[in-house]
Design a protein around this nucleic acid. Structure first.
Lengths: 272, 272
DNA sequence: CGCTAGGTTGAATACGCTCAAAGATCGTGG
DNA sequence: CCACGATCTTTGAGCGTATTCAACCTAGCG
């Protein structure tokens, strides 16, 4: 797939979601933000329902999601698919593109997707000038690792009911960090088929499970607009055995950890 | 858990498995190997069946497995466990320790485990001197990402039979890279209970599945010594839809990718 | 207005689970 | 050296969660 690049203009003076996310866990210096904007120079818009990275492709670019959702998946011979993870605004698609230019899993969009595109070389430059950003990037990778680990636990050892509740909570939480949801509902541009493929269930069963969650007063789905409303977050967390802390909480560690992010100078004094 | 450190002595002049693994995908320069040995200064031995990292702990060390197996897992309220991934010789436990000192998932040993222990600060020094090693470390993280993604696919969309075959093939392959298995069999220090917890199955069912694999002449288990013999690797791969390439194969990319690992000077000329 | 994609429901089936009990294997201590 | 307990493996039987198949419904769009 050929992607047409245009220059990126951040809308109404807001920071791009990646910066929001990083700033959420570790307040950024002015110059770090400026430096991060270098990853946001070129953008592209990709239609809904497009496979824009295909297993086996050689692609040495990374993408930052600005708006919309994408997902990484694997197709099996019998036509089944398994969604591995979602890319929400602020997430980096192909974070290892520099060292693993061969795409191992396809990536597709669930909605119109706006991304910024950068060459991984930019990262190297960025990191050598701002080593703390390298660590923050590492934090982000670690967070994605945890998130995928949780997907393993969901699929391996949770019932359909708990699985579904758990996923909805995670999506809600991730959107909250970048500030694009309200008190208790969010816009989820996904079909039940995709949910089924995420949770390793059949479409029939995910439909029944969602119905059950609604009947029990735990969630509310507004069909047309694809809004999901979590009616009783505490109860959902309890049902799903949802542990929030795998997603953030580097914040309070600065004092307990001798070489924490806060101690590292944001600007390197290495001579180039 | 308190871990007692001793100095590390590599046995009979062999390279440590991490170096073997990195060298396998990208031949290392002499001085890079020397530098990597700095991560191997201190070692520790941990008994079989020990939980040595516990969810919630604050630990800012990383570990390199020298010998034996460990695994990362999550415990649920009903007593069930889900294994997320295995750490085999050459694998790094807690690769994100510097930026995520809070342990998100417990790690335990399946056998007597010898590890080398390093402070993540060492990594920073290492990477600033030898930037290519930073990329190789990144490659390793990307590989682990793929491996966990495959675990998601196994659990979500494969039958017990295919799942089991697939996992055995992956373990076999990973051991092969570090050169500790023979033509078609390997030593796997795991119980059926652990296999069940890895594959999201009950112990009864994993037992029956292994029996079926044996009956069909695909594998052979020597109970006492925990050796697993793959009798027909090609057929197993076909059954499991096993795709090897998510595990290695950076090798041949040097020509197609303009900023490949091979092009990057092994020694940085950055002034410290 | 009719087509298509997505959502809903019922019924039969199957894969994998739970419960239960018995066999192996190994380490330990008498 | 054997007996005992602990851990792991094996097997049977009944059950339940989730699947498959099939049909119908609904909303959006040309």
């Amino acid at each position: 797939m050929k992607i047409k690049l245009i220059s990126y203009q951040s809308p109404n003076d807001e920071f791009p979601p990646l910066i929001k996310k990083l700033n959420y866990i570790q307040p950024l210096a002015e110059e770090e933000i400026v430096a991060l904007m270098k990853l946001h120079e070129y953008s592209a818009v990709i239609d809904e329902g497009t496979v824009f990275l295909e297993q086996g492709d050689i692609r040495d670019r990374s993408f930052i999601v600005m708006e919309g959702w994408a997902y990484r998946y694997s197709s099996l011979e019998n036509g089944n698919q398994q969604v591995i993870n979602y890319y929400l605004p602020g997430d980096v698609i192909s974070p290892f593109a520099l060292v693993m230019p061969k795409v191992t899993y396809s990536v597709a969009t669930t909605s119109k997707l706006q991304v910024c595109v950068f060459e991984p070389d930019c990262l190297i430059k960025l990191f050598s000038e701002y080593p703390r950003l390298a660590l923050l990037y590492g934090w982000m990778l670690g967070r994605e690792d945890s998130s995928m680990a949780e997907q393993v636990v969901r699929l391996g050892r949770r019932s359909a009911f708990k699985r579904t509740a758990h996923l909805l909570l995670e999506l809600f939480h991730r959107l909250k960090v970048i500030g694009i949801n309200d008190e208790n509902f969010f816009h989820a541009p996904i079909t039940q088929q995709l949910l089924a493929d995420t949770l390793g269930l059949s479409i029939v069963h995910i439909n029944r499970t969602l119905k059950k969650l609604q009947k029990e007063g735990l969630i509310n789905l507004s069909k047309q607009k694809k809004e999901i409303c979590l009616l009783d977050i505490e109860k959902l967390k309890q049902i799903a055995e949802y542990r929030i802390y795998y997603l953030d909480e580097i914040k309070n560690l600065n004092t307990t950890n001798k070489s924490s992010l806060a101690d590292i100078p944001s600007r390197s004094n290495v001579m180039q």
